[in-house]
Amino acid sequence: MTTAPHDESPPRHALTVLGAGVMGVGITVLALGHGLPVHLVDVDRELLDRAGDRIDGELRLAELMGALPPGISPGELVTGTSLKAAAGATAVIEAVTENAATKAAVLSEVSALVRPGTPLITNTSSIPVDELAGALERPEELVGTHFMNPPYLIGTAEVVRGPRTGEPAMAAVTSLLAALRRRAVVVRDAPGFVTSRILHPMINDAARVVEEGTATAEAVDALMQGCLGHPTGPLRTADLIGIDNLVDSLRVLHERTGDDGCRPSELLVRLVREGRLGRKSGRGFYDYT
Rank of each mutant, 00 (worst) to 15 (best):
N123V: 07
V129Y: 05
T122R: 03
G57T: 06
L180P: 05
A171R: 12
R45T: 09
L77P: 09
G162H: 10
G88K: 04
R161E: 13
E76F: 04
N149T: 15
G80K: 06
L47G: 13
E167Y: 07
T97C: 06
P163Y: 13
T174N: 11
A87E: 10
S125W: 08
D53L: 09
I154G: 06
A171Y: 05
A51Y: 09
D44A: 02
R161L: 12
L64A: 15
G57C: 08
D53E: 15
A86V: 04
E109S: 11
T118C: 06
S82A: 13
A112C: 05
T90A: 05
L176D: 06
A62W: 01
A157R: 06
L177H: 13
N149D: 13
K84R: 15
V96R: 11
E58Q: 14
E131P: 01
V78Y: 12
P69L: 01
R50A: 14
R60D: 14
A67W: 04
L113F: 07
V106M: 07
A179P: 00
I127K: 02
A171I: 10
V159A: 06
P128E: 04
A179L: 07
E158V: 04
S111Y: 02
A67P: 00
P150G: 14
P139C: 10
E140I: 05
G166S: 10
T165A: 09
A51H: 11
G155P: 11
A86E: 04
A178P: 07
E109F: 02
A105S: 15
N123I: 03
S108P: 00
T97R: 10
E140G: 09
V96T: 15
M170G: 06
L176H: 08
P70I: 00
A101H: 15
P74N: 04
V43P: 05
P168W: 11
R138N: 13
P163Q: 12
M170P: 00
V110I: 12
L77R: 08
N149S: 15
M148W: 14
A105G: 10
G66E: 08
N123L: 03
V114G: 02
V173W: 01
A89I: 04
R164W: 14
D130P: 03
L61C: 07
E131L: 14
L68R: 14
D130Q: 13
P74M: 02
I93L: 11
T79N: 02
V106Q: 05
S73F: 08
R54G: 05
G117K: 01
E46M: 00
L180M: 06
L47M: 10
A112D: 11
A62V: 08
I154T: 12
F147Y: 15
E158H: 01
L136N: 01
P128F: 00
E140C: 01
A133M: 12
L180T: 08
V160N: 10
T124G: 05
D49A: 13
A91L: 05
S125F: 03
T97Y: 14
